[in-house]
């Protein structure tokens, strides 16, 4: 008992002094669960997030756009991989994590349940969805769990081209024909609010938020992050000559930030619950990849075993 108290004290001290918690260090069970849940959810989001954009690789309008989009989505696969690895340091292997996603016991970001309907959506996703993700991820570079923090540092380095890739698409559309510009505005209209929802419910309604902050797993609250994203995105929209679909959006001189309207939380919770436009398709696609890949993974395992046995025989 007293030993547990000592360990708790060491842990608390580390959190206080900004010393990272490493996989084999003692940590409270609740901390382990919290970090693991967050990393797994983040990993699933990266991987499911490949699907809406993947929908446009075959139809990318130029060779330059095609390779950029492909490289961008490839990075997201890498991000999923880094984050699963970080989660695995806490003792749950990737296969188990993936099963939890497929069984519906683990969540992923609600944004990826929205469809990518036009080429402009690829621009909007890179600009807004990656933009919002980056705001969150920059904060997470300083998370208290070592492997999560290191994964975030690597991811942020790679992310740097994603948002630019999306914004450049938007810029090209906005400098193009009326039809192209309308396509861009339509994409912004559809992706603006769901992007704001990416930061999660307001801190006062978010069950994990306060504890995550206390443990320094998260370094900023959902509301502050969301505000930061809005403040930096408005002038980017202005530069494009596009209108953010929020009539209440207005600069507040006193606060030094934008005032803005109301998120439709009913929509948010419905999408989380599985009622979004693409929830079923997204999970079905991941399930199919998992099922159709089983015999391939098994074959490679079997081959590795045979090869090792052959090697042993030779050595004997």
């Amino acid at each position: 008992m007293s030993e547990e108290k000592d360990l708790q004290a060491i842990f608390d001290k580390k959190i206080e002094n900004e010393v990272k918690i490493e996989p084999k260090d003692w940590m409270p069970d609740a901390y382990r669960k919290n970090v693991l849940r967050q990393m797994a959810q983040h990993a699933h989001s990266e991987v499911v997030g490949m699907l809406p954009e993947g929908n446009w690789i075959a139809r990318a309008p130029s060779m330059r756009r095609k390779v950029a989009l492909l490289a961008k989505i490839q990075d997201e696969a890498g991000h999923g991989l880094y984050l699963y690895s970080a989660a695995e340091t806490l003792g749950k292997d990737r296969d188990t994590l993936v099963r939890e996603l497929l069984e519906g016991t683990a969540k992923y970001s609600s944004i990826f349940n929205y469809p990518a309907l036009t080429w402009a959506d690829i621009g909007a996703v890179g600009w807004l969805v990656d933009g919002a993700a980056i705001v969150n991820q920059i904060m997470l570079q300083k998370t208290s769990y070592g492997p999560y923090s290191r994964a975030m540092i690597r991811i942020c380095k790679e992310e740097s081209f994603h948002q630019r890739q999306g914004y450049e698409i938007m810029l090209t559309l906005c400098r193009g024909t009326d039809e192209q510009k309308a396509m861009a505005q339509d994409a912004l209209n559809r992706f603006w609010w769901p992007s704001l929802m990416m930061f999660g419910p307001s801190d006062k309604d978010s069950p994990h938020s306060a504890q995550s902050m206390a443990w320094k797993v998260k370094r900023m609250g959902n509301d502050d992050l969301r505000q930061k994203f809005i403040d930096q995105t408005v002038k980017q929209a202005d530069f494009l000559g596009l209108t953010i679909p929020d009539p209440e959006l207005k600069w507040n001189e006193e606060k030094g930030q934008y005032d803005w309207g109301q998120i439709d939380w009913e929509e948010f919770f419905n999408v989380i619950k599985g009622n979004g436009p693409c929830n079923k398709e997204r999970l079905a696609a991941r399930q199919a990849a998992y099922d159709n890949g089983a015999w391939v993974r098994e074959a490679a395992t079997a081959y590795a075993k045979k090869k090792a046995e052959r090697k042993d025989k030779e050595a004997a």
Binding site: L81, Y82, S85, E88, R94, R150, A151, R154, R297, A300, T301, Y303, A304, K307, A308
Partner: peptide
């Protein structure tokens, strides 16, 4: 650099 999954050393 990080971790990954693979069936054997070559892969």
């Amino acid at each position: 650099a990080g971790s990954l999954h693979a069936p054997d050393a070559e892969m």
